[in-house]
Structures are given as C-alpha cells and as structure tokens.
C-alpha cells in the first residue's frame, strides 16, 4: 500500500480548515489510524484548533485513534444482523479474544470492530475478516475462523 506521509497529505491543502475531514480520511487510509502526532500536525497544517480536530476524529467511527490489530474482525450490528444474532457473535469474539469492541488484543494480532450495516443484510449475520465477507455466521464458525487465523499467524 503506497503510504503517504503527513507532509504529502497536507500538501496543497494548508490553511484550508474545510479540508479537515478529507485530510483525516487520507491519514486514516494511509496510516491505518490517526495518531496524536498526526492530529497535531493536521491541526497546525490546516489551522484548525486541536480540540476541533480531536472532536471530529473521535466522533466518526470511521476514524480509529489507535492502531488496529493484524486481523480486523468487523461484526455487523445492523438491524438485520442484530435480529439474526449478531450479539452472540460479538460475545463470541470478545470472549474468545478477551478484548472489548474497538480494542486490540495485547499481542496485536486481532482487533474487534463493529459497524451498523454492511449492505448485505439478506446474507446476515455478516462478519468481515480483513475486508473479506463471511455470511450466515454462527458463533461456532466464528470460533473456528479465529482459531485458524491465530494458528496462521503463529506459524509465520
């Protein structure tokens, strides 16, 4: 992934406070998360008070303020998936990995996330693993998936 430095992202957008969200999106896309330093740099570059940058970055779930794990498991918690038992999947993942939603395991291998609809409601409940969709998920399928992923990582 061609990752751009903060300098490159801010290039041509300095002192344009209205670019805040776009810039944060770019930082998120190329760095995977938005660090405190990145927010400070964005604040200075765009001339937006740091409080404002932090407020916006902490408001949208699309922005992560901490690095994510190697494997990102995203549970769909939308209405359709919810009625089909997304809660159980979330409990399975958080229980098995011992983390809370939007947290990373201490070994940095997994992070568990939730979203409100992935647009594949008919196939729910949906879990995505690093962007790959798994449909009709059940707690036991999810347990196996997590087991496989942790074994893979242990091997390489």
């Amino acid at each position: 992934m061609p990752s751009r430095t903060l300098e490159q992202i801010l290039e041509g957008r300095r002192s344009q406070p209205n670019q805040l969200i776009e810039v944060l999106q770019d930082v998120q896309a190329s760095h995977g998360y938005i660090s405190e330093e990145a927010m400070q740099a964005v604040s200075q570059g765009l001339g937006v008070p740091i409080m404002e940058v932090y407020r916006v970055a902490s408001f949208y779930t699309a922005f992560r303020l901490k690095p994510s794990g190697k494997n990102v498991l995203t549970m769909c918690m939308g209405t359709a998936c919810h009625v089909r038992g997304a809660r159980l999947l979330m409990d399975q993942a958080t229980g098995q990995l011992g983390v809370k939603p939007r947290e990373v395991t201490p070994d940095g291998l997994f992070s568990v996330d939730h979203v409100n609809c992935l647009g594949a409601c008919a196939l729910g409940p949906i879990v995505t693993e690093n962007g790959t969709y798994h449909h009709h998920m059940t707690p036991s399928k999810l347990r196996k998936l997590i087991d496989t992923l942790s074994r893979q990582k242990a091997e390489d």
Partner: peptide, 23 residues
Amino acid sequence: ARAIGFVGRGKERHVDYPFGIRP
C-alpha cells in the same frame, strides 16, 4: 481558548481536553 470540547458520540459523548490532558 478551545481547551475543552465534546469528544466521542452517542453514549460515549463527554466533555474533555484534547487527548484528555489539560493543554
């Protein structure tokens, strides 16, 4: 001063300093 502001959303919304530390 903009030393405090709203952070987070929904249930998590609260008033805080940037990164929780008094600037």
